[in-house]
Amino acid sequence: MRKLILAVGGTVALATPLANADVLGVGANVSYWDSDLSGDVVNKGSAVDIENDLSLDSDSNANFTAYFEHPVPVLPNVRVNYTTISQTGSGRIGLEEFDGILPGASVDSELDLDQLDATFYYEVLDNWVNLDLGLTARKLDGELIVRDTTGTGRVSETTIDGVIPMGYAAARFDLPLTGVSVGGEGNLISFDGDSLHDFNVYGQYELSLLQLRAGYRQMSIDYEDDDDKMDVELSGPFASVGLTF
């Protein structure tokens, strides 16, 4: 498996944070993401279009986030995020074979993507304008299973896995005295032909400890693991509910 190495080299100055939380802060939220999927998967040199050939549809895209903020200088805040994506479909292989499955064969397919993020960040601004900068270590696991249903019984498995460092940034703008805010956050890396990005923008309403959020999320994965490669994009609206303390 190829390894990604991210050289930060001063593009994000994390050593000396400009602002810290005044008190301890803890929060968590869960969200549902209604995403559309497109792209290609390559297995040992043969490719398949996961939208047009496999007709994958979203079954469940769930996301869980928790964070811990503190007033201790130098030490970063911590954010953990887990995203699980499951898509299934029935389709037909195109004009070229895919991993031993013949052209025109009917297939059933399953795509599973799991992402576990550990993000270490600093609050650069902490008032009505909030800005966080940091680094994310993402554990990425992806698997595509394609089953030939025409009688040959051929089963193709394509897998990718890796721990990937990414730059992290989040900004939020609070509207005074309303509990309403707008913002966005994202993770990004591009290195040696591989690239990943994961962005979202949202509107948020807070009432006491309750936090309601709705927005749009886009995630792109272009990652090669030995002879297997996934070049896919997911995008669509999401809604979440959370608690902050």
Rank of each mutant, 00 (worst) to 15 (best):
H197P: 00
N187C: 04
Y168D: 04
G167F: 13
D194C: 05
F173H: 03
P176F: 08
Y168W: 08
A169M: 14
M166S: 06
L175D: 07
I189T: 08
G193S: 11
G184W: 09
F199H: 12
D198P: 06
M166F: 05
Y168A: 06
L196F: 06
V182T: 01
F191L: 03
L175R: 05
L196W: 00
A170Y: 07
G167R: 00
D198F: 06
P165R: 04
H197C: 00
F199P: 02
A171H: 03
L175A: 15
S190Q: 07
G184L: 11
T178V: 13
I189M: 09
R172H: 08
D194W: 05
T178G: 14
D194H: 07
T178H: 13
A170W: 02
S190K: 07
D198H: 11
G167W: 02
G186A: 01
N187D: 13
N187V: 02
P165Q: 03
N187G: 01
G186C: 02
P176C: 08
A171Y: 05
G179K: 10
Y168K: 05
A170D: 10
T178L: 15
D192S: 14
H197G: 01
D174V: 11
F173S: 03
G184R: 09
L196I: 14
G184D: 10
S195L: 00
G186H: 02
E185H: 12
V180S: 02
M166D: 03
M166C: 04
F199S: 10
V180Q: 03
G186S: 03
G184T: 12
L175T: 10
G186V: 01
G193N: 10
L177W: 12
D198R: 06
E185W: 11
G183T: 10
D198M: 06
E185A: 13
E185L: 13
A170M: 11
L175W: 12
L177H: 09
G183S: 09
G167L: 13
L188Q: 01
D192Q: 14
F199W: 15
F191C: 01
R172E: 15
G183E: 08
N200K: 15
N200P: 02
V182M: 06
N200A: 14
E185S: 14
G183C: 09
M166R: 10
G183V: 10
L196C: 00
A171I: 13
N200R: 15
L196A: 02
G183K: 07
F173G: 05
Y168I: 04
A170T: 01
L177E: 11
V182N: 01
Y168G: 01
L196S: 00
E185V: 08
D192I: 02
L177I: 11
E185Q: 15
H197D: 13
L188P: 00
V180M: 12
G193D: 08
P165D: 04
N200M: 14
L196P: 00
H197R: 09
I189E: 02
S190E: 10
M166L: 15
F173N: 03
D194R: 03
A169H: 04
F199K: 07
A171V: 15
G167E: 02
Y168F: 15
N187K: 12
P165N: 04
L175M: 15
